[in-house]
Write a protein that binds this DNA or RNA. Structure first.
Lengths: 116, 116
DNA sequence: CTCTAATTAAACCATATGGTTGAGAATGAA
DNA sequence: TTCATTCTCAACCATATGGTTTAATTAGAG
């Protein structure tokens, strides 16, 4: 559905940039759902909700199995893992301060130990 | 710049859904840059690149300090941490399989041990 | 076969997005 | 003051997005 690595991330992050779609993913985290079930919580036409599901599907976050006249959707988290992998590179920019704080506290501890 | 929690995530994920902006963030991960420096790698007008920086800034991913006539940008990773926190909920959907695989392999190991 | 239910498709609309160019607005340098 | 540098703003354009409504498709149920 998507060509290269960058376009892949484009699609995933774009799919995640809408609260309706994020809510749908959350619903799917509790089990398979039909399109109608996914659409139900929203004050939106079924066709509108269906488009959101399609965006999720095109991003590879949702897989669809057509069973009779209902389309069963399930979460496919692999692409979310890729998104998180991308984010992980930046982890040091918010853990470094915590590490610094940690080091500071550990130094305090040692001081306490030494003065005992 | 952004109101509620959901709109916050909307903005962050949308900012991340463009390869140009992701590249800019990566550049900023190596240190502060001016707008011109951020724009340089791209075959794009300066005004165009400037808009991308603005998107990053509005999402809270970049802070800007105006020094004279140059605008110095630096990465602000806090919002990336929030995005990762959102993704973390779904971690179990790609670690659970690994756990299952792990359990399976461990069972295999035990079988090997027993038959030794 | 007929009716209803589940879903997509198509056409349409308003607004957002990503890009351009050209014109300022500040600042630094000569 | 004058000129060049850095950057934003405004206007514009093509296309994408998020939504609608109406029609068509497909499948289960009576």
């Amino acid at each position: 559905m998507v060509e290269n690595e960058a376009a892949q991330l484009d699609a995933v992050f774009h799919a995640l940039s809408d609260a309706t779609r994020r809510a749908m993913l959350h619903t799917l985290s509790t089990g398979e759902r039909s399109i109608g079930e996914l659409a139900a919580p929203f004050s939106m036409s079924l066709a509108g909700a269906s488009k959101h599901v399609k965006v999720l599907e095109c991003a590879g976050l949702v897989r669809r199995e057509i069973r009779g006249r209902t389309h069963l959707c399930r979460l496919d988290a692999a692409r979310l893992a890729e998104a998180q992998a991308w984010l992980r590179y930046y982890e040091r920019f918010w853990t470094s301060r915590l590490d610094a704080l940690d080091a500071l506290l550990r130094a305090e501890d040692e001081k306490m130990e030494n003065s005992k």
